[in-house]
């Protein structure tokens, strides 16, 4: 008899480490309890996972560790609902359930030989992180890399350990901005779209990858348009309320696309072909 894989059954994993990113965001490093499965776990940058705290429910997060890391998977969790609060209350060594990998990923092969402009807002850097790592690991295949990272205040930047490294790195140019000036801040000040406009990056042979809160995406896209970026060369990754993660339960649709199977990564071209608005 044909055995059908049960994609709704999570695998048990253990939290190896918890990193506090900002006052309400933590990152979890978790490893599947099945050592063999962990070693053979393959995912692509941009794919997501459903993390459950049994008794509370499941939520969707992007796997933000680098795909080449076979020791653990990293997720960043902002405290907002029942399940995310439950995750925040967990400590190292405790168990969660994982269903992964789900969804599609950034077409990094198509980006080879091009300049890449990463634009992240707040926790929106998380989906870009595995892509940035992957591209940095294969730097020779890509041209100039730029990262514009915006946050409300200096405290709201996640992944400070990465930022420190990227700041020193010659392979990637890092621009950080905060919404309002504050004492001791010597980098850019201003909203992401405004800073982007000031940067005036060339759209020539360049791909823009953008992720952040809906309002930031909306206005940043307008600037990218102004800068002559084509819809095919803009990628974003979307969030919707998800339950099953395998395209059955229906709720994460934007028009005829399901974010959980056709996404979460979309080019602006794909999105503009859908009548329903994605913001």
């Amino acid at each position: 008899m044909e055995v059908i894989k049960n994609h709704l059954l999570p695998k048990i994993a253990t939290i190896k480490k918890i990193i506090r990113e900002t006052p309400n965001i933590i990152s979890l490093q978790v490893a599947l309890d099945d050592i063999e499965a962990m070693r053979n776990f393959i995912f692509e940058p941009g794919q997501v996972a459903q993390i459950s705290v049994f008794g509370f429910g499941e939520s969707t997060f992007v796997i933000n560790s680098t795909p080449s890391n076979k020791d653990y998977l990293q997720f960043s969790v902002m405290k907002s609902g029942v399940n995310t609060t439950a995750i925040h209350n967990l400590s190292e060594g405790e168990k969660v359930g994982i269903r992964a990998p789900l969804g599609n990923w950034f077409p990094y092969k198509d980006m080879e030989g091009k300049n890449i402009l990463f634009i992240g807002g707040g926790i929106g850097l998380a989906p870009l992180r595995p892509l940035i790592f992957h591209i940095l690991e294969n730097k020779e295949k890509y041209m100039k890399l730029t990262l514009l990272y915006a946050a409300k205040s200096p405290d709201d930047f996640c992944f400070k350990y990465d930022i420190d490294e990227w700041e020193k790195s010659k392979d990637i140019q890092l621009i950080q901005t905060i919404d309002n000036a504050c004492y001791g801040w010597d980098k850019e000040v201003g909203l992401c779209p405004n800073v982007l406009e000031k940067m005036y990056p060339s759209s020539q042979n360049t791909i823009a990858v953008i992720c952040g809160p809906p309002i930031m995406i909306k206005y940043t896209l307008e600037v990218l348009k102004k800068l002559d970026f084509e819809d095919d060369n803009i990628y974003t990754t979307l969030e919707r309320r998800m339950k099953c993660g395998i395209g059955k339960c229906g709720r994460c649709n934007i028009g005829e696309k399901f974010v959980c199977v056709d996404g979460p990564v979309f080019s602006l071209r794909e999105l503009s072909n859908i009548s329903e608005t994605f913001i």
Partner: peptide, 28 residues
Amino acid sequence: CFNIGDEQTGMKGERYKCWDFCTNYYYT
């Protein structure tokens, strides 16, 4: 369309799927 939820009593619990409807405010 369906919803997925957890219920727990004491140390035991279950994850269930149940009907849901798209005209519902909570759906999305």
